[in-house]
Design a protein around this nucleic acid. Sequence first.
DNA 1: CTCCTTTATGTCATTATTGACATATAAACA
DNA 2: TGTTTATATGTCAATAATGACATAAAGGAG
Lengths: 179, 179
Amino acid sequence: MNTLSYGLLSLLTKNSRSGYELMQHIQPFWSAKHSQIYPLLAQLEQKGHVAFVHVAQSDKPDKKVYSITEQGKDALREWIAMPTDEPVTRDELSLKVYCIGLVDKEQARMMLAVREVYYKKKKERFNLLMDKLQQASEKPLDQLEIGDDAFGMYVLVHKATMKVDTDLIWCEWMKKKLT
Amino acid sequence: MNTLSYGLLSLLTKNSRSGYELMQHIQPFWSAKHSQIYPLLAQLEQKGHVAFVHVAQSDKPDKKVYSITEQGKDALREWIAMPTDEPVTRDELSLKVYCIGLVDKEQARMMLAVREVYYKKKKERFNLLMDKLQQASEKPLDQLEIGDDAFGMYVLVHKATMKVDTDLIWCEWMKKKLT
DNA sequence: CTCCTTTATGTCATTATTGACATATAAACA
DNA sequence: TGTTTATATGTCAATAATGACATAAAGGAG
């Protein structure tokens, strides 16, 4: 069982979802393509960690909706108790910035501008996510506690928002450096 | 040529280094094991992007010191001009935090405490790095410009410091949430 | 003198991840 | 009516990355 498998189980603790939906919703936490997710779901099903039902849809193609089993929840709890791997970040931009002196200021500015747009779009998405969370919650989000269903998602979106804000501040700082 | 290959070339624009040194110095920007780096260096050498000399050492085993060639620099400039891949972050902790409600507050606090220690050590390393950069520089670091050799490294360490500070603020915020 | 750690280079099997190929339904658009 | 887009599921070859195995020199600890 790899980390992504446990990630899928984690998502399924909140909602039953199809493979396609899981693929979409796990992106902020663990980037993965559908070609990796579908085989893992089949494995998880074989092990009894998840179960699925066919769900017919009139407006869209039919889907297989997966739910976590009690056995799956046990596996999750065991995994959480294990030592946590350190985060891995791979950003091509940092490698390019390292040797930015190879190109001129104008090209450097352009490169950073593209990334800034990416960060701004990302921030927008997190803002929308936070709004959606608030609408679905009876409590104000900052009063959520560990027992509440939305707690994990809330604190992660908060973390992601803090990070993207920091990234945008760095972009502004870089713009001044490249004036 | 994959991204890590270009990353190795990037490092070599500043200093000639051995595979072992490259492996150590690329970690903050792109995590990779020596078993991935040595074969790539051999490929880069075959393509004429780098060249190496054997360097005998009395206090340590001998090493192969690689330098970037003009051809390698051309390849780097071409790569910088290409669209930049989006950053990929994979953090097992975020998956565990998502379903943190499965375990009790005490276990959650412990998990976060381990990560906080990791962030603090990381911050310490970046502080030392920044000190080392300042000592090696004639100018104050905040006056470095794109043409200066240390510029890229400086702005990246600054970015990394900002990020780890944000991570530590989130840890403090989480501690309150888990009181 | 032996064991452990760091430095140093390498290979190879396995695992993780991506990208391409394949198929199909349904809505929207032209 | 044909085309594109989003949804939906899947396989498979190729690439990226890790972990284990292997070797060796040199220093330090005991």
